[in-house]
Amino acid sequence: MALEHADVQRAAHLARLGLTDDEAARYVDDLGRILEMVDMLQALDTEGVAPLAHPLDVTQRLRADEVTESDQRSRFQRCAPAVENGLYLVPRVVE
């Protein structure tokens, strides 16, 4: 499956990665070759093979419904780029 410039731009937008045109052009090339390598998978017949999401056949353990965490806001917000009145600040979101 050939990769187009638009595919890279679309992926970059979905992933919120700013790319210059030069970078995008380079990634079209890189990603194209990676996908070419990946396309080798298509040669393999996997009809009827169940996808494997986890290497072990184990199931989800459930946690008891208990409050175990206490307020650590000031500690957690020490590494935040912009906070005010305990809120994380971002450029105005328009709805």
């Binding site: 912009a82 005010e84 009145n85 305990g86 809120l87 994380y88 600040l89 971002v90 450029p91 105005r92």
Partner: peptide, 9 residues
């Protein structure tokens, strides 16, 4: 917030 949006999680 000075033209910003505040986020409460």
């Amino acid at each position: 917030f000075h033209g910003m949006t505040g986020v409460d999680l």
